[in-house]
């Protein structure tokens, strides 16, 4: 069961500012979902290994500088900028 305090903590880590009403609704939804998904306990104990993508091999390339012709387009998407710099809100 996720209680309200836990949900508030989870929301904070998830970078989601939730209203009181959203917290009420989501608490109900999340517990309904987890309640059903606890079914996984019926089989998980039989599992020995944790899944990983087996088919993947190491893909390495030489670390060489490459030209990027998209920088102007990428900068265009910035919400706030000063000359070529991305402006972000203060972190302190």
């Amino acid at each position: 069961m996720i209680d309200q305090d836990t949900l508030k903590k989870v929301a904070q880590i998830s970078r989601l500012k939730l209203s009181e009403q959203e917290i009420q609704e989501l608490q109900k939804d999340l517990n309904t979902i987890l309640d059903y998904f606890s079914k996984i306990n019926e089989i998980a104990a039989k599992g020995e290994e944790m899944y990983y993508v087996k088919a993947v091999r190491n893909a390495v390339r030489k670390d060489l500088p490459r030209k990027c012709d998209k920088d102007e387009k990428i900068r265009k998407a910035f919400n706030k900028k000063q000359e070529n710099w991305l402006l972000a809100p203060r972190s302190l």
Partner: peptide, 29 residues
């Protein structure tokens, strides 16, 4: 939002063993 919150929850240090580790094992099964 539901999915982000649940994903954060099941991978948090306190709840990881109860959820995420188990789901990885079940996926392998």
């Amino acid at each position: 939002k539901r999915r982000i919150l649940l994903g954060t929850y099941i991978t948090m240090k306190e709840f990881k063993d109860a959820w995420y580790t188990k789901t990885l094992k079940a996926r392998d099964l």
